[in-house]
Design a protein around this nucleic acid. Structure first.
Lengths: 214, 214
DNA sequence: GACGGGATAGGTATTTTTTCCTAATAAAGA
DNA sequence: TCTTTATTAGGAAAAAATACCTATCCCGTC
């Protein structure tokens, strides 16, 4: 989450880029030269001060810098993981309905009534991660280069496709069949490959695949 | 120069993108639901109100939208098109690497260096829509209940899976092989099903499948 | 060395934004 | 149809940011 420190740091970077001081950019923007004083970035009781959007706009206007460029200056390095959004709404309809008239315009875009809105599920899990498939061992379901989105906290039920890692450091994609207190039964994603029953003690972790890229 | 109207408009676009009202995003951000009321965007004497950077930060944090994405929403050059990537940053690693030690903690969550960050591709297309699969005619690739995300504006190349609708109102999922000025060659997703060559004039629209739920 | 201007810390007054509250209307659910 | 919840307009109070002011220090110029 964007912090006031990010914004102050970006203002300082901006000033540095123009070889100016914080008081100089404030002055150039028509603000009081003390506006961005380091001493005024928090109150005496430690409460953070956030520069107003109006002040920022004046500075950016005076320096000829776009809001987008300024936002880029607030960017931290990508070393940490970013929080996961809930995702935008996407229109949804059944495949059978898609064959009927009235659901697509001439460009193939959705039109008309009858479309539900669906949220892309599962991305509310902060621990979602992606794996990229190497090779075609699991084609046609998972092909070389496909990206697989995994939600460690999603419930797993019959028929769900899962990724698991064993204690012997094998990572595999399977279809979950059932589990008891001792072991888990997994169907292969590849035709003509034997199903497996793996003892729970041999499994380091198992998580559900929620999306596969195409 | 960035105006308060630009910022308010961007907030409204954001709310619309999430199918939420201004009061709903304020509430979700932990702000008072009346904070972004249209009636409060200027004072009774017409003086503009600028939302504070602190309020913006709270909204963006709650919705998982970056400051950069938000700044892009304020950009006038994008007027009319919401082509902003609203996707999530997700940690990504290769499946083969996933077998090595050091990439997952004991709960199966990603840890350590070596993880890339990837944006879920394709959701920047405004016209993205989803279809829900009925039946198992295309299993194991597309199973009953699977949701397929389609990006009408994505480029289509060899091996891409596509959805197309014909003039005779058939909707089908296929694998794109090639296309010439007359027709398109499509491989079946189902083993032992004949491939098809369809004249372009018989195709109403064809679009690429970018994600399949599991 | 003296002087002027800029940069910064810090205090107070003023202005601005958010919060809290009320009321009316619209939308959703039973 | 009725009830509940959400959304929005609008007013007053509280909180927060800027403007104004003072003082000190530093740097550059004469």
């Amino acid at each position: 989450m964007l912090s006031h420190q990010d914004i102050w740091a970006a203002l300082d970077k901006l000033a540095e880029r123009f070889s100016m001081s914080p008081s100089a950019i404030a002055r150039q923007a028509g603000l009081d030269p003390t506006t961005f004083n380091k001493s005024k970035r928090s109150s005496s009781d430690g409460k953070a001060r956030w520069p107003s959007t109006e002040s920022l706009s004046k500075v950016l206007g005076a320096l000829g810098v776009s809001f987008e460029d300024f936002a880029a200056l607030t960017s931290k390095s990508q070393s940490g993981r970013l929080s996961i959004p809930m995702g935008a709404n996407v229109p949804l309809i059944g495949l059978a309905q898609a064959a009927e008239t009235g659901y697509f315009d001439s460009s193939g875009y959705p039109v008309g009534e009858g479309w539900d809105e669906v949220r892309i599920p599962g991305l509310s899990d902060d621990h979602v991660f992606a794996l990229q498939v190497n090779g075609d061992a699991m084609a046609p379901i998972l092909r070389d280069g496909d990206r697989v989105i995994i939600s460690p906290n999603a419930n797993i039920g019959l028929g769900d496709r899962v990724i698991l890692k064993t204690r012997s450091s094998e990572v595999m994609a399977k279809e979950f069949e059932k589990m008891n207190s001792q072991s888990v039964s997994l169907l292969s994603l590849k035709p003509n490959t034997p199903d497996r029953e793996i003892p729970l003690k041999d499994i380091k972790w198992m998580a559900r695949i929620i999306w596969v890229s195409q």
